[in-house]
Design a protein around this nucleic acid. Sequence first.
DNA 1: CGACTTTTTGAGTATACACTCCATTTTGGA
DNA 2: TCCAAAATGGAGTGTATACTCAAAAAGTCG
Lengths: 183, 183
Amino acid sequence: MARYQVGIRTETKIIEATRQLLAEGGLDAATLKAICDRAGVQAGSFYNIFPSKEQAIMQVARDAIQVVDPDPEHAGTDTLDDLVDAYIRFVIDQSDLARIYLQLAVSGSSDDSVARRFLRHHVRRVERFAAAMLRADGALADDEATTKAEVLLGALDGLAFRWVLDRTFDFAKHARIAASHYG
Amino acid sequence: MARYQVGIRTETKIIEATRQLLAEGGLDAATLKAICDRAGVQAGSFYNIFPSKEQAIMQVARDAIQVVDPDPEHAGTDTLDDLVDAYIRFVIDQSDLARIYLQLAVSGSSDDSVARRFLRHHVRRVERFAAAMLRADGALADDEATTKAEVLLGALDGLAFRWVLDRTFDFAKHARIAASHYG
DNA sequence: CGACTTTTTGAGTATACACTCCATTTTGGA
DNA sequence: TCCAAAATGGAGTGTATACTCAAAAAGTCG
């Protein structure tokens, strides 16, 4: 039998509640009770849809990472500045999600699928950065570009981490300085 | 008033047990029961020495960082290379604790005292990096040195994070490149 | 020894958590 | 309208957690 509409609506409410709680207070805030309370649902309904709390959180993480994926539409035409600006905008606009990424990636002990997903995303971004560097400097070797891209993205990630811990930190300024060493 | 020797030995046993458990299984493995079992001590003894489990964990983290500090006396004689090498050594030698370090910093959501503590530590490190830069280049302005130090440490932090997610990543190589670019 | 202080014990408390069970209600197709 | 499958309510279970407390033991020193 196909699923009933009301069940699908409940699933949506649970996912949305989970997403909000993760953004507001991190992994610790997303308890089963908190999720059910915010979704306006009882525990029994939750487990009628999800086999475990972890599965719901994984689904939120999957969806969020999907949204953040580099836009394939602009592939091959971005400059390094474009990419850095996009990164800065993402970190500032989606700072709550950035913290969840860090938490999930670093605390993923039982299930490291999130860490792997995060890594794939990172590698893809390194490739785009390296490609932009190669377009700007034809004399650059492939592996040199990849190494430079790793260092630059490391700096951006580290500065973003710094900013998550202290919102008074001027992330955009430092990020642009980090990028300027390759201009 | 002075502490008895047996109490100091107990503290050592607890710290050592905590250190082992953190290294073996991360934050989740270091429960109070696990720590006390391994130390051969009862919960009451633990709380006779430490005000909370968190304090014991923080002390382990502090000690680990202290071990690789190139200039614990803050004498102001370390070079930037010394500091970068110390950072690299910490991340590689104490990789398990480096992961804990990230976990602690990023998981301080409800109780931000941990995040603040790590931020203070970070700021102090930035000051030492900036001071080393100033000693190497007298023409550098104070705020310029601080900004450069923030960018370099951001890169080191980001690359360390990258390495925690993927142990095949050549952290030392990229860290040294970052130091040569941003130093 | 004897007085005093520190340390240890270990059962006990309070609480939070993910998850279950199943009677009841709702849904949507035939 | 009927009815089987799907969804729900909500009390209840089991477990793990950090932490407490008062009495007993052991260390320290004159």
